[in-house]
Design a protein around this nucleic acid. Structure first.
Length: 266
DNA sequence: TGGACAGGCACGATTACCTCA
DNA sequence: TGTGAGGTAATCGTGCCTGTC
């Protein structure tokens, strides 16, 4: 989508975005010609081709050089990660141009260890308990954030806005997954109950059929004369006036309620 | 006024790192 | 010490909405 073009700079260097080369996002070069990449760009040019979270700003030098081939992406989400990018670029103001070698990043200013990642691996942040708690509290208040809330939260937690955004996305996903599991369990229970009910009703039908056979003159059943008791709130044959033939079933009862039928049937 | 386009955002699916048993 | 499972941060692709030209 965003990073699907190889960049060919005027220096004749090229690369493929890290995340496209392999699953681990390792930087690699074209083995055939052993090209190296030298990224010379300001933030805006680079964000035109890379999501800020997908290419480390450290890969970008502070050289203010416009490179035309950086601006060819049509659906670049320029602003999406802009704040985080700019923040990091700001941190890198003093850094020099960084070279990317086949073995990864060569940092010429490696006194700041936190900023120096081996971009052969995707560094994974572990949020502290405090950060998680704050995010949880915030999530309880509102499950989505507007830009200002995101920025404020990020500043408060010393995170990048993008990280806050991702956390909320994942949190929403987890909530939804949990709710789906709950719903599934409820449906499963309903299904089991209905199955039991169906089994019970079938059994009663069989019992009534056999009863009809053994006592044909005492119980006259037909679909037209079956009715339900009012407590079941089921429809019944309102036209039937002969109480002696009305039979009622009550959902949940082990035995049907018979109206106007001799008690020995029970 | 309608269409094309870009940006922003949310989402689902997936990947990959990390921890722990 | 190696390993598999689970949790989760991060990535990717896509669709929808909105603003602008």
């Amino acid at each position: 989508m965003m990073c699907n073009t190889r960049l060919s700079l005027s220096l004749g260097l090229s690369t493929t975005p890290p995340h496209q080369n392999n699953k681990k996002g390792k930087l690699s070069t074209n083995d055939d010609n052993q090209e190296l990449t030298l990224c010379l760009s300001t933030s805006s040019e680079c964000t035109n081709n890379y999501d800020n979270d997908r290419i480390n700003p450290q890969l970008l030098g502070g050289v203010n050089s416009s490179v035309s081939s950086f601006s060819n992406t049509s659906s670049v989400k320029r602003e999406r990660y802009a704040s985080s990018f700019e923040e990091e670029v700001e941190n890198l103001e003093t850094k020099k141009v960084l070279l990317i070698s086949p073995k990864g990043l060569i940092d010429h200013n490696d006194d700041d260890e936190e900023d120096v990642h081996d971009y052969g691996t995707r560094k994974k942040l572990r949020l502290t308990k405090e950060q998680s708690d704050v995010l949880e509290d915030s999530f309880k208040e509102h499950t989505t954030l507007n830009s200002k809330q995101k920025r404020d939260l990020a500043r408060r937690l010393s995170l990048r806005p993008r990280q806050v955004e991702v956390w909320f996305q994942n949190r929403r996903a987890r909530t939804k997954l949990k709710q789906t599991e709950v719903d599934c369990e409820i449906l499963r229970k309903c299904y089991e109950d209905l199955k039991d009910e169906n089994r019970r009703l079938n059994k009663e039908i069989q019992e009534l059929k056999s009863l009809k056979k053994s006592q044909p003159f005492r119980v006259q059943l037909s679909a037209a004369t079956l009715s339900m008791c009012q407590s079941c709130e089921r429809t019944y044959n309102g036209g039937a006036t002969d109480n002696s033939t009305k039979i009622s079933f009550s959902i949940g009862d082990q035995k049907p309620h018979f109206y106007g039928i001799p008690s020995q049937i029970h």
